[in-house]
């Protein structure tokens, strides 16, 4: 019931008009360059997200869709060494086969992006993108490379729609900065 209401609301709203609570946190780009900073940030985000029915130590699958813009090779650095398997795949394959806990959205066609965002709704899947600095297109976490360094925004709307549990401290980091 609630999910269908969300679906109706989402269908009516154009992607650009999606209510967003944009949040940012600045991360120093130290020694290892941007790729390392991205991996660290993605790992940090993953560590603050809880999947229903999964325990903190359980293995996760990250599906990389499209080409990452900010990282040359994706290898998230999760505190506590949580096992993570990486899979490079396509939007169609994701929707057809599932099996992804995290979707990393790189450079994509807007149609694919739209399809994936629609598909993710109400599923326990975390979406992170590095191709949407303003965080307008429905991903939960959006990485952005600015002059001050690497930062991320949080789309609270997108998070609220799904069953994932995100540690409020992460949300607060962004919220207070905005």
């Amino acid at each position: 019931m609630l999910a269908s209401l969300f679906l109706i609301g989402a269908a009516l709203a154009t992607p650009g008009m999606t209510v967003q609570q944009a949040s940012q946190a600045i991360v120093d780009e130290s020694g290892g360059g941007l790729t390392e900073a991205v991996n660290r940030m993605v790992g940090g985000i993953i560590s603050y997200v809880g999947w229903p029915g999964r325990r903190a130590g359980d293995s996760l699958t990250l599906c990389q869709v499209g080409t990452p813009r900010l990282a040359s090779s994706l290898a998230p650095d999760i505190p506590g060494d949580r096992p993570l398997s990486l899979r490079k795949t396509s939007a169609g394959a994701v929707i057809a086969n599932g099996g992804c806990d995290i979707l990393y959205l790189g450079r994509l066609s807007s149609a694919d992006r739209m399809r994936l965002v629609q598909w993710v709704r109400a599923r326990p899947v975390l979406t992170i993108t590095d191709d949407d600095p303003a965080c307008l297109y429905g991903a939960m976490f959006c990485l952005a490379h600015r002059e001050a360094g690497l930062s991320f925004s949080v789309n609270l709307d997108a998070i609220a729609r799904g069953p994932l549990r995100v540690d409020p401290r992460v949300l607060q980091i962004g919220r207070s900065v905005s």
């Binding site: 946190a25 600045i26 991360v27 120093d28 130290s30 660290r40 940030m41 940090g44 560590s47 603050y48 505190p79 991320f152 540690d167 401290r169 992460v170 607060q172 980091i173 207070s176 900065v177």
Partner: peptide, 17 residues
């Protein structure tokens, strides 16, 4: 507890908060 995410993301501003 308060600075844990700030350390994860290496965010001085968040650490101050």
């Amino acid at each position: 507890y308060g600075v844990e995410p700030a350390l994860v993301f290496r965010d001085p501003q968040a650490a101050r908060e």
